[in-house]
Design a protein around this nucleic acid. Structure first.
Lengths: 205, 205
DNA sequence: AACCAGGTGAACGGAACAGTTTAGATTTGT
DNA sequence: ACAAATCTAAACTGTTCCGTTCACCTGGTT
């Protein structure tokens, strides 16, 4: 594939552009963000911005993509199969709860949801590089742990989904609708613990 | 100033306007919806539309509000405390799973999420009249059932949140990001059953 | 018949905003 | 130092679309 990538990264100010775009998109949403603002915040001329990205939509997708990458990297250290299941799960639960409590993550999530209908590729890309990575990793772990006799999971994919859902109980919805501000670490910890308790009550060996 | 209501309902075509707006908003989202289109679909002139609603935002809020009301009415029949817990929960689980599988519900949900940041009242109003109603109803039931010795729930609010989350495992996220189309009733049934199993494993008496 | 509240349709003002262009400044590699 | 690559500032184009306005129609009431 000698095909030139649609997005080139050669110039000096690529990083600035991406950083500024991230900031403005997160603050204003996709439609609300204004390209002139992005250029100003990035400390870059609009011409420069458009020399990197053919249009606003692709700029946004790159921002979402890079943010997903960051999350995926963080998720890598999520599973340490040599620990007892309770510890592994608790560690994962904390990460998930924190994710849905963080303003940045939430904002990206919100935008991808909002635009998923008009830009289907965006939604699918986000899902594939973000939530699906975590899901697969967790499902793999559950399969391993079941084979090792530490858990009893019949359907690892479903169980992984259930676990992720449990970890955001009482956090996600309220945050998404702006009912609550950022929640206390103690609250997150409680939700995470409760998620693990419930998961083990059902799937514990 | 006789304090005229911001939204008046006197004219003959109020219903048409609301119906047309609902259709276009659901299909296009808030930003994507065009007021001329709404008027056309509603079979009404733009002047008439603006005689009912001072602006697009309030029109949207009225659509969201009426849709929530509909959901709240449907939720009323959700809890029948005289049945055994497993049946009550299964009934609720089916409703929740179906809700998150329905295109209409999903679309309204998506829009409220998208606009919650710019129109905070909208997000809070949606939460209060929608998800929170269901949550309170479920929490009340759990409290009752615990007192009656049919369940053992320490924190009914948290448990209600957990239950709702479990019911959308593997449905919600995929639907929200456009990864999957509408899922089969069999799949929903499986998710609902699995949710109930897990819930009872933890909170069953 | 005269009245009138509610509705029509079409045009218009005006603001916001994506994306382009151009002539010139600045930085970088050599 | 010099040329190539990169970046800048600002004006400009074209479009979209909200919300307004105005002259005119319609169907029911008295």
């Amino acid at each position: 594939m000698g095909v030139t990538r649609p997005v080139m990264r050669t110039g000096r100010k690529f990083g600035q552009v991406l950083e500024g775009a991230r900031e403005v998109f997160v603050a204003e949403g996709y439609e609300g963000a204004n390209v002139d603002d992005i250029a100003r915040v990035a400390g870059v001329s609009k011409a420069t911005l458009y020399s990197y990205f053919p249009d606003k939509r692709l700029l946004f997708m790159e921002v979402a993509r890079s943010e997903c990458q960051r999350q995926a990297d963080a998720a890598m250290e999520l599973v340490q199969p040599d620990l007892p299941p309770r510890d592994v799960l608790l560690f994962g639960a904390r990460r998930i709860a924190e994710f849905f409590n963080s303003p940045m993550s939430l904002s990206i999530f919100r935008m991808c949801v909002a635009e998923a209908e008009r830009f289907p590729e965006l939604g699918r890309e986000f899902y594939r590089t973000g939530p699906m990575m975590a899901r697969n990793m967790m499902a793999d772990y559950l399969r391993c742990a079941t084979e090792a006799g530490n858990l009893k999971v019949e359907d690892p994919e479903l169980a992984a989904d259930q676990f992720a859902e449990l970890c955001k109980a009482g956090i996600f919805t309220q945050r998404l609708f702006g009912v609550a501000g950022e929640l206390s670490p103690e609250w997150c910890e409680k939700v995470a613990n409760s998620a693990v308790d419930m998961f083990l009550a059902r799937y514990g060996a």
